[in-house]
Simulated assay, not measured.
Amino acid sequence: MRVRIIEPIKSPELKRKRVCAYARVSTASEAQGESLENQATYYQSLIESNPEYEYVGVFADQGITGTKDERPAFQEMLDLAREQKIDLILTKSISRFARNTTIVLELVRELKNLDVEIVFEKENISSFDGDGELMLTVLSSFAQEESKSTSENIKWRYRRKFENGELAINTTRFLGYDKDEYGDLVINQSQAEIVERIFRDYIDGKGTFVIAKELNDEGVLTVASGRWHPSTVLNILKNEKYKGAAKLQKTYIKDHLTKKKCINHGEVDSYFIEDNHSPIVSKAIWEETQKLVVLRAEAKGNTAKEKEKYQNRYPLTGMLFCSKCGAPLRRRVWNSKYASKKIVWQCSTYIIEGKKSCPGTVIDDTALSRLTIKQKTVVEEVFKNGQKYYRYTSKSQ
């Protein structure tokens, strides 16, 4: 008798979807932090309890508006999706994902082309649904209008505050003052000594670069616990609050989508209050300092007219900064009279004061032309094996 062994048929293993979630809260308050933590816990439990899902992670941004697409966790999630390491994204609602209609639709289409599905729980919409895009267009438009309305309400509240002479100052980033229980500015004596020293040194003839260097050499930190730069010193010297006055609404938000802060040149009302709080320097010292700032700027050719003329010439003007002293890089032409001429960007402190003030940073314009620079960037020269390379860092960091 012939016996044949029948092997058991193995059913193909079900491929699990690689799933993540995105969560966001718009402020950094403690309550919002708890909300973000709860969302992360909820989504992790939801994904891990589903046998058809493989948990990729929960990406969460706190204190960042949904009208902007510079959210770090959001961008990390998109990078993974573009590397085809995610199949499904879960999110609470369209407004948590993004409030800008254009951003929502562009990302939904991009991810759909990558076979990445997005599910919006509150609206019960999947980006893979046939009529999903139409619903997203309508609902994200509502979310964008809601964001605009919220922005206008916040602006209105601040305008009322300014009209009533109320300050909106974060003293954790304002050297020399704290706030008392009533929200009024009170002098922080140890910090005030640094402010007084800066004004005194400047009047005695020291420049902003020298003052910043001496403070750094002595290990004195800025109010943000960072290093001093000439621009930091200059901002202190020009701040009217140190003479006890307050100019309100120096800047304004032009667009609720980009949240870009613009200097107020009269586009909106501004308010000036004399004798608003206790001064750190006298009015006489402050006024003398302002005259010196103008005179020294004129001596260097840094007048407002020249700055405007220069800044309007090249897209990268005002965008590049020296890693050694923090000064802006200035566009220059080397060997302009010869065939070997080339365009470079060089430290303005080095150009004006020489290497005794700063060793300087210099970079070819051709190297920069290969980059896409859309924010203020610190350029650092790095030498490795005798070769020079460059490291680029956002100035905000």
Rank of each mutant, 00 (worst) to 15 (best):
E48L: 09
V333N: 10
S225D: 11
S369F: 05
V233A: 01
L105T: 10
A246Q: 07
L88E: 05
A192W: 02
G66E: 09
P328D: 10
E214C: 03
Y338Q: 13
C20P: 00
K342D: 13
S396M: 06
Y53P: 00
I253D: 07
G354T: 08
I373M: 00
T91Y: 00
D255C: 10
K243P: 07
D184N: 14
I253Y: 13
T67V: 07
E166T: 07
L14F: 14
V233R: 05
E37R: 15
E196F: 00
I352A: 12
N113D: 15
A21P: 03
K179L: 15
E146Q: 14
T102Q: 12
C325K: 12
S190Q: 12
D201F: 12
F59W: 03
R197K: 06
H229T: 14
L257E: 13
G130P: 01
Q39C: 07
I263C: 03
K283I: 02
D269A: 07
L292F: 10
F59P: 00
N335E: 11
T171H: 09
V119F: 08
T150V: 14
K238G: 03
V333G: 11
F142W: 05
R160E: 13
F142K: 04
I352L: 13
E218H: 05
V294Y: 09
G326K: 04
P12M: 15
D115Q: 09
K213Y: 06
N188V: 01
S11Y: 10
V378M: 11
D269T: 07
T27A: 12
L80V: 01
L90F: 07
R200S: 15
Q32D: 14
